[in-house]
Nucleic acid binder design. Structure first.
Lengths: 233, 233
DNA sequence: CTAATATACCAAGGATTATTGGAATATATA
DNA sequence: TATATATTCCAATAATCCTTGGTATATTAG
């Protein structure tokens, strides 16, 4: 094996992984799996594709060792193969947002109500949430909340929000978040809350984004509750 | 535009970037450009492809805003569009090496002489190089050395090594590096040096790898000389 | 054991991407 | 101005990937 063949093999291996993430739907599946392990059928539903197609995409991701699967009764549960994977997704997203102004524009256009709080630093949000000055609201499905959530956050899945909205205080700012900036559940929740007279603000960051930012700011370290020992709030 | 269409647009934009890096040759071009700006013809030569094909690949990379080009007389010079790009390449590579054991195996198999020094910490190498205890040898082409090099490193391009080998001390360890772990110039240099009785050791890291590692270790910060004011050693 | 469910496997058509030949453009040189 | 050089553009074929229909497999429920 000469130098050229060795190089081709090495770059080829890395490309195996980059090819796996070179598809919008596969990126979306990674985002979904970054929240919690899920079955094929659920992934398909949440990504708006057929189970068959989801299965094919997941096979690609598995081939690149970005996700792994495990049978659980009748269904097959996929999960990210390491915490590096969500981190990687955040990084990809961030880099794309830095470099593609089309993306920046699309995001800016989207942020009708978004903004102010995103930029307020995590430490101060943390303090306000701890002291009950604001309410952190996680509108993702319950299992995703249980897997990991922002500190002091309260779970109220979007689907239940309409029925449970009265549990929330009318006199406090409600900071709503979901899976990340490309997930629009928090947007819908904010619209609903505002309609009902609540002071709702959208936080575009999700758990993975928060974790990456926090590990960079070394110190703040807002360890995300959750994981093995689920405790519903 | 409903939620689904918005999501598709957002993930689609990120995929635009990931698609650009989903090719071994384009990854190789990014590595080459991470060293220094280069013309199409030179990139084609160094990546072992036709200029035409190089041009096509570079167009893709430009479309994703990962590189930019600028005419300089008869030729067109490409460069990475930001220091984030080499950093991104190192990260991709690292993640792939973490997750794909095939890659790990290929690298391990390759490291006949590689190893010991890679794992010695940067601070201590830095000290030894500063005090002349060892020689850091950069075997990349001169312009890449001028663009940026490891601290206290000396330039001796692989092509000139045979003729200039006598300039090197026989009684000191010579630490040889090049573009990074997938570049085999340092391997060839080490073989040549050992053949001639020198104490040569391969350092698999290149400038970009060193920079990423150093910024993580916050403190060591071995600012890489080079850039606007080139000063040949 | 049979039926129902969830997922994977296989195959095929359509869509996209890779690669190369030939022509066009822009610059430098004679 | 004519010629050579470096690169891009265009077109066409080959290769690859996407997507879906049909089928197979494993599991649970009856």
């Amino acid at each position: 094996m000469n130098n050229r063949e060795i190089k081709d093999a090495l770059f080829g291996q890395v490309a195996r992984m980059t090819k796996a993430v070179a598809s919008p739907k596969r990126l979306e599946l990674i985002e979904l799996l970054s929240q919690a392990p899920k079955s094929v059928e659920r992934l398909a539903r949440e990504a708006d594709i057929s189970p068959k197609l989801a299965s094919a995409h997941l096979k690609e991701l598995r081939g690149a060792r970005l996700v792994e699967s495990q049978r659980q009764g009748k269904r097959i549960i996929y999960r990210v193969s390491s915490p590096e994977v969500p981190q990687f997704w955040v990084l990809l997203r961030t880099l794309a947002e830095d470099r593609l102004f089309e993306l920046k524009d699309a995001l800016r256009q989207l942020s009708l109500s978004r903004g102010e709080w995103c930029e307020e630093d995590r430490m101060s949000l943390l303090r306000k949430a701890r002291e009950g000055e604001i309410v952190m609201l996680d509108v993702r499905p319950a299992d995703e909340y249980e897997q990991a959530h922002l500190p002091f956050a309260r779970s109220m899945p979007l689907a239940e929000l309409h029925g449970r909205i009265a549990e929330l205080p009318l006199d406090k700012t409600i900071l709503v978040y979901c899976r990340g900036p490309y997930c629009l559940m928090s947007k819908d929740a904010v619209l609903l809350l505002e309609e009902q007279g609540y002071q709702a603000v959208l936080l575009s960051e999700g758990v993975a984004e928060w974790a990456v930012a926090a590990s960079a700011e070394s110190g703040c370290d807002p360890v995300l509750t959750g994981g093995e020992a689920p405790g519903r709030k």
